[in-house]
Design a protein around this nucleic acid. Structure first.
Lengths: 160, 160
DNA sequence: GCGGCCGTTGACGTGAACGTCAACGTCAAC
DNA sequence: GTTGACGTTGACGTTCACGTCAACGGCCGC
């Protein structure tokens, strides 16, 4: 039955991951080239398991927050040695903390940018309200959330 | 007296801005090439005023949050027409709102990444505490804040 | 047996954001 | 008067993150 497909043994073809995450096969192979992914092989074909998929999630999030692939790899490697030697772990800890500080700084930047944009928005709204209230539209329609595609026909926890 | 230097009439050479913001002259010229900056000239030499400097602040923040120069330019141009025609303003408003939504999504990503990193940190700390408590260092020393350099010898509001 | 679709491996191309270098002008200091 | 710091304009080089394309293999349906 379908529940089978959710079990961790589930594997994915390259295209399945591509469709789900909206990336190209080229990109996945590129990440592999750079050591960010290393899916199993079935003959020549790549076979991704749930761990590869999780890594991909991290990779893409890393990209979205502006990290380079090299930086992302560094972080992933830190996880890898999470059970390695103690000295290594101490170094990893330092690097993790550096990342955290950097991300917090970036969040600050985003807050700044947001409040500036919001300010501009309000000024524009006020201006338009006086000049051409007819052009004033509310915040924005239904805005279909960029629902990620599942290839296995399963819903993403649509509450029973 | 020195207060003169803080007044808005104050101008900057390319190198002064470069040192203050830690960018290269090449970068500033590049931004100019792309229409992000347009300093006055004194003969051939570029002369930046306080508005140029403010724009540069925005540009660099935009970069730090992951925007491309083209996107940054778009935003700056939106400000430019903030007092233009009403139809234009309505369009600008939509674009601003789009940006805000995107930035909020990015902030979400950052929160996610942060909590993952923090989790990893805690696991590492716990592990180290058991294995080699001697290697456990507190969050991090004085950490000289990346104080931006002022060339005019002024302090950045160091509270009297 | 062959047309499609999926997959593979090179290899080359591309756009963004600069870096680097050459060749030149200008002005103050020595 | 020449050295050196600062400025200018090209023009070419480089890195990153892929896109694109060629050439090939495997398998399914007809």
């Amino acid at each position: 039955m379908a529940a089978e497909l959710r079990r961790p043994e589930r594997t994915f073809t390259i295209r399945q991951l591509c469709v789900e995450f909206k990336v190209t096969p080229r990109a996945l192979r590129f990440y592999e080239d750079k050591g960010l992914l290393s899916p199993a092989r079935e003959g020549l074909n790549r076979v991704y398991n749930h761990r590869d998929r999780a890594r991909l999630t991290l990779i893409l999030r890393g990209k979205r927050v502006g990290l380079s692939l090299a930086e992302i790899r560094e972080i992933l490697d830190l996880y890898k040695v999470e059970d390695g030697g103690a000295t290594q772990n101490a170094k990893s800890l330092r690097k993790f903390r550096e990342r955290i500080v950097a991300l917090e700084a970036q969040r600050e930047d985003i807050e700044h940018a947001l409040s500036e944009l919001r300010g501009a928005c309000e000024r524009l709204e006020a201006h338009l309200a006086k000049a051409r209230p007819d052009l004033l539209v509310e915040t924005g329609g239904p805005q279909v959330p960029p629902q990620r595609v599942r290839l296995d026909g399963l819903q993403t926890a649509t509450a029973k």
